[in-house]
């Protein structure tokens, strides 16, 4: 019975005309989380964000999780206020040819006044994420 089921599955795979190498594979890195936090702490091997209780404080930290990255990568964080660039940071990570399923990055920002700000996150010159936030 098991052999019959296996044969049926193989036949079905054959009929479907899609070989495994032709199947879609995710080649690009992607941001799975952008957050503004008070800080980070290390718990064993894990980096844990410390969120703000309520409103975002005047000196937040950008906390970022990037997945599916290969090789050397450059992450650029740009901060805008009233549509004008006010702060920019660049973080590099990775070694040539290595694969990173999950990378945690963080960057403290300068103290800022009350207002609405926009963050733009670029990975290797490609814009991957935008986040609007308000400091109160």
């Amino acid at each position: 019975m098991k052999k019959m089921v296996l044969l049926f599955l193989v036949l079905l795979g054959f009929i479907s005309c899609v070989s495994v190498k032709n199947l879609p594979q995710n080649p690009s890195p992607y941001i799975s989380k952008i957050d503004l936090v008070k800080g980070v702490k290390q718990e064993g091997e894990r980096i844990v964000p410390l969120p703000f209780k309520g409103k975002i404080g005047k000196k937040p930290m950008v906390f970022l999780i990037l997945k599916n990255a290969t090789g050397v990568n450059r992450v650029k964080i740009r901060l805008y206020s009233k549509k004008i660039l006010i702060e920019e940071y660049e973080i590099s990570f990775g070694k040539p040819g290595e694969y990173y399923s999950r990378v945690v990055l963080w960057q403290g920002l300068k103290a800022r006044k009350k207002g609405t700000y926009t963050l733009a996150i670029f990975v290797n010159r490609n814009l991957l994420g935008i986040k609007k936030f308000r400091i109160e």
Binding site: R78, Y80, K83, I84, L85, T118, A120, F122, L127, I130
Partner: peptide, 11 residues
């Protein structure tokens, strides 16, 4: 549609 560029300014 709306296109945005993040350069020195947000355009």
């Amino acid at each position: 549609w709306m296109g945005i560029n993040f350069g020195k300014k947000i355009e």
